[in-house]
């Protein structure tokens, strides 16, 4: 399912127009980004939690044998909630 399909589905189920749905979704995504950048985490109980994690710098080796120092970076990770896990039938490991 791509973004277009998502918007049309949302529009159908919420009763809003497609344009309104799009602005709402864009706003939601922008809001989530802002919250993640400032606070580092967003938890949606029924769905899961988004979290910003810091990856430390490390040295890795390229296939040609060259050693490269990879800088530290912040990555967004997602962890499905237990409810969601149950729904998708993922085993709790």
């Amino acid at each position: 399912m791509n973004n277009k399909q998502l918007i049309s589905e949302m529009s159908r189920r919420s009763g809003l127009s497609v344009a309104d749905t799009q602005t709402m979704i864009n706003g939601l995504v922008a809001e989530m980004t802002e919250v993640l950048v400032s606070d580092g985490a967003v938890t949606i109980k029924q769905f899961g939690s988004f979290e910003v994690k810091k990856k430390m710098e490390r040295v890795c080796q390229t296939p040609s044998g060259q050693k490269v120092l990879v800088p530290p970076r912040l990555v967004l990770s997602f962890k499905p909630s237990p409810v969601m896990r149950e729904r998708i039938g993922e085993e709790e490991l």
Partner: peptide, 8 residues
């Protein structure tokens, strides 16, 4: 602090 759905 984790932002929850209500804050969002």
């Amino acid at each position: 602090n984790r932002a929850s759905l209500s804050e969002l």
